[in-house]
Amino acid sequence: MTLPAFRVLQPRTVEDAVRMLDEHRSDAMVIAGGTDVIPNLQMRLFTPRVLVDVKPLRELAVIEFSARQGLHIGATATLTHILETPWMRDKFAVLASAIGTVAGPLQRNMGTIGGNLCLETRCRWYNQSHFWRQSLGGCLKKDGDICHVAPGGKFCWAAWSGDSAPAFLALDAELEIASLSGTRRVPLREFYKNDGMDRIALARNELLTAVHVPAHMAGRRGVYQKLRVRDSIDYPLAGVAVAMEVDSAGICKDARVALSAVNPAPMLVTQAGESLIGRKWSLELAERVAHAAIQTGKPLTTSGSTPVYRRDMVRVFTRRALEETWKNGHGSA
């Protein structure tokens, strides 16, 4: 498949980059690792005139942790770089667990954390070639006015299909976003809009520059469980991330549970923390939270497998992730 014609701009600084984005606005797209963008361009899901290549911006590739500032990961840090950071698994178990499941090693060597947090939402009626989509008359998200997943509806259900976002949600992360007017910080949970068509709160003239995790999250136990057919390459059909602080008496001090691939956004399970805090492990408690998880996750026919099965697995994986985190203490520092 060919690529559309475009120019590539190579900024030398973040300021350069946001100036370029500001200048070209809707004509421009950011490219870093290319693993998501290039296939999407080949399918003509987008036809930007300009690509702003932020990959060479070394200042954006930094991975740091300090007890005061917490975790800082620059947007162009590759997934492999994060995984291979020696202290990552001990300090941020859920993150290492999630990133280790992304695609395969070749893709992780290229893919960046910024790209993973800004993935396009996926749907099998959408992630298809120009010919394929045309043969159908397009869909709500692109070139058409019908949703093939929920016909009659005017809402796009294309699913959030990234692995790192639920882990960062479970770690209460914040994003750093740059534009010509300066830098703003936004809690990750407010970044995702749960709309398959308009997935993230990022203006066309803004650039995601970093993700931050508060220092007190370091050392949290956690795990990510991913439903997929193959043990590599596949994007999630459902994903559950759990991060938790458990005291020496085995009492949960703080916890978050987040889901992926079952909604147009990665989502925190509402009330999960409230249910868990101050409690000791019990299967009934875990089942209760798992039940809350399937109230949050609403899988539809946007991907393979069946919505019923994926919903089932959200329940099973939530319980198992809680059990593994609580009882086996994965990632306890």
Partner: peptide, 13 residues
């Protein structure tokens, strides 16, 4: 020295 996919890499980059 790192294995990457040349099918999603823009040559000029």
């Amino acid at each position: 020295g790192t294995p990457m996919l040349s099918c999603v890499a823009l040559a000029a980059s």
